[in-house]
Design a protein around this nucleic acid. Structure first.
Length: 623
DNA sequence: CTAGGGTTAG
């Protein structure tokens, strides 16, 4: 093709410059198809002829974009800004959405610009009209992920003003919610959900479900209930997953009765509970079902079978774990055998759960037998399995064995995780071998493991324990410098240490501080303060703490009462002590060994036979 | 949409 020799090109270039812009561009269009055009040449050309629109120009741009001739396109657009150019593209008559999307992405990257929400929305609508949903999804993902502070109302407004196709608007906005959830911004997703109501966008059950699921994960049960109620009000379609998610959220929050109500709701809608529904309920009862939790969990198992829903491996895993944590490993083993009889094959999680239960119960030999069994079944022990054993050894103060196992894992090339480290670090801290604990901390970076809040909590607790308050505070500061936020346990440790030192005022300020930070004080937090005041011989002040915990919706537990009873006994106020003993019984709390010891000691001291209150004594004597 | 490991209190 002799006419495209470099010499001819140059001649043509000079010639075209003297022609009208339009002709020149047409020539360029011919040329660039052969990829010959040197960018500086094009740039010079464009500088000399102000833009003209029209089919030729459109074709040129279209061709450049579709063939990814970015450097040449850059030459052209350098004289106008990418945002204006994008707007020009939107007005092209026969320009397809793919080309605009292509330019959109390239220009953001090449010019380091972020297009406006309106531009995004224009593109989304364009894509929605030709049903290119996956493309919208991935672009929305980028949009949400990179957007620092996205104005949802601007987005809504743009959607309504730029499109009269309500279907497209609904789809785009629905996908926006999913994108927010997928990029870990549930707060934003929730705002979108609210706005969708204001602007009348119809949402799909899929995006609402994923929003619900994200809110459950964050433990925001109030928001879960809001979304659920709104879905009913707005007549969003429901499905089984919607109900299961809400039920699971309520169970996780300990709202078991409410969860039961939702089960009735779903039946009304003609949706029957599935194995997932029952599993969520059973898990809820196992973990937060009060004193008779395992009885209720077991009743649910029977109920599901009766209504024709068959338990699966997960159901058994939940129950086995529940019984283990309830201190009833024997029941767990019975279930383990039962599941095999029903043709369900225990998996790695099943074995790990049982092994952990046995190890926590000090039955390491039995746990070892199970490990052998899992190997026979072709199941590979993983880091969780090993951690259960490390924990078992640590609990038995067999730190040598624990450390040997740890080293073995490392040697085997299995990646040790932060839990393995924490288990061992905690064990060393507990027996006062701080140097060993610190040595492990120093090993963490080498194994590519970062300490977490729990790691620091172990160390902070250990330093308080040996009375090195300065070191504890130093490491607390170090933790916060690393961006790790103190959690409830951190505060419990601090508050407890303060109370033990008699600094109860300071401890209360610490409690206020954790509340300000949005942390929910636990029973342990309040109990530490109750104990602190009692130890100071000031059970009256301890009562104000009890009132505060009740106001916050935390019911005093056995520990709270034990501490109070001991406090009142300690300053000779036996009647008050007895009042609280009766109060705890009225509330259905079962006194434990410690309650019994406190009262017995007190009575003996006073020279009474410890059966003044015969009924109570009989109750206590059972322990 | 449901299941497993470590940390706090008397």
């Amino acid at each position: 093709m002799p006419i495209y020799s470099p010499l001819n090109l140059a001649k043509l270039g000079l010639a075209t410059l003297s022609h009208s812009g339009r002709d020149a561009l047409a020539s360029m269009y011919c040329l660039q198809r052969f990829s010959f055009l040197p960018p500086p040449f094009l740039h010079g050309l464009v500088m000399h002829c102000p833009f003209v629109s029209g089919p030729d120009f459109e074709s040129l741009i279209s061709s450049l974009i579709s063939n990814h001739k970015w450097s040449q396109l850059k030459s052209i657009t350098e004289s106008s800004n990418p945002t204006d150019f994008l707007h020009q593209l939107f007005h092209f008559k026969h320009f397809n959405s793919d080309l605009i999307l292509s330019y959109f992405k390239w220009s953001q990257h090449a010019f380091q610009v972020t297009h406006s929400i309106e531009s995004y929305v224009k593109l989304f609508i364009l894509l929605a009209n030709v049903r290119k949903y996956p493309k919208i999804r991935s672009l929305l993902h980028v949009f949400v992920k990179q957007g620092e502070s996205i104005s949802v109302s601007t987005f809504c407004h743009a959607l309504l003003t730029l499109s009269d196709n309500s279907c497209a608007c609904n789809v785009v906005f629905d996908m926006l919610i999913s994108a927010c959830v997928d990029t870990g911004k549930p707060e934003l997703a929730l705002e979108c959900f609210r706005r969708a109501g204001d602007y009348g966008f119809k949402l799909s059950v899929v995006s609402c479900n994923s929003l619900l699921s994200a809110l459950v994960k964050e433990g925001r049960i109030g928001n879960v209930e809001f979304v659920y109620k709104e879905m009913i009000r707005r007549k969003v379609e429901f499905n089984l997953i919607t109900f299961n998610t809400v039920i699971n959220g309520l169970c996780k929050a300990g709202r078991l009765n409410k969860a039961g109500d939702i089960v009735e709701d779903m039946k009304v809608y003609g949706i029957m509970p599935s194995v997932v529904t029952y599993n969520a309920l059973i898990d809820g009862y196992c973990k937060r079902g009060g004193p008779s939790r395992m009885y209720k969990a077991d009743a649910l198992l029977k109920e599901m079978v009766k209504s024709g829903v068959f338990p699966n491996v997960i159901t058994y895993n939940i129950l086995i774990d529940g019984f283990c944590k309830d201190g009833n490993v024997a029941a767990s083993i019975r279930l383990f055998e039962e599941m095999k009889v029903h043709g369900l094959r225990p998996g790695v999680i099943t074995y790990n759960t049982l092994i952990n239960g046995l190890c926590s119960d000090g039955k390491i030999d039995e746990a070892m037998r199970l490990r052998d069994e899992m190997l026979e079944m072709g199941l590979e022990p993983n880091i969780v399995t090993y951690n259960a054993f490390i924990n078992g050894f640590s609990k038995k103060k067999m730190l040598k064995e624990a450390k040997e196992l740890f080293d073995d894992i490392v040697k085997k090339g299995i990646a040790v995780n932060v839990v393995a480290f924490n288990t061992l670090i905690n064990a060393y801290c507990k027996i006062g071998q701080l140097e060993e604990a610190l040595a492990l901390c120093n090993l963490m970076p080498e194994k590519m493991v970062s300490p977490n809040v729990s790691t620091y909590n172990c160390l902070i607790g250990a330093y308080y324990h040996v009375g090195d308050i300065e070191a504890a505070n130093k490491i607390l500061g170090e933790m916060e410098e690393k961006g790790l936020k103190a959690d409830v346990v951190t505060y419990n440790i601090r508050i407890n240490a303060m109370c033990r030192r008699g600094e109860t005022r300071k401890a209360v300020r610490c409690l206020d501080e954790m509340c300000r930070k949005g942390l929910n004080p636990s029973h342990i937090t309040y109990n530490a303060l109750v104990a602190g005041y009692c130890q100071q011989g000031n059970p009256r002040a301890a009562l104000t703490v009890k009132k505060r915990m009740e106001k916050e919706g935390k019911r005093p537990n056995v520990v709270t009462y034990n501490v109070l009873i001991k406090g009142f006994c300690g300053c000779g106020k036996l009647e008050e002590a007895n009042k609280f003993l009766n109060e705890m019984l009225e509330k259905g709390l079962i006194p434990n060994r410690i309650t019994y010891d406190i009262i017995k000691e007190e009575m003996m001291e006073k020279g009474f036979a410890p059966d003044i209150d015969g009924h109570l004594y009989n109750d206590l004597a059972k322990f």
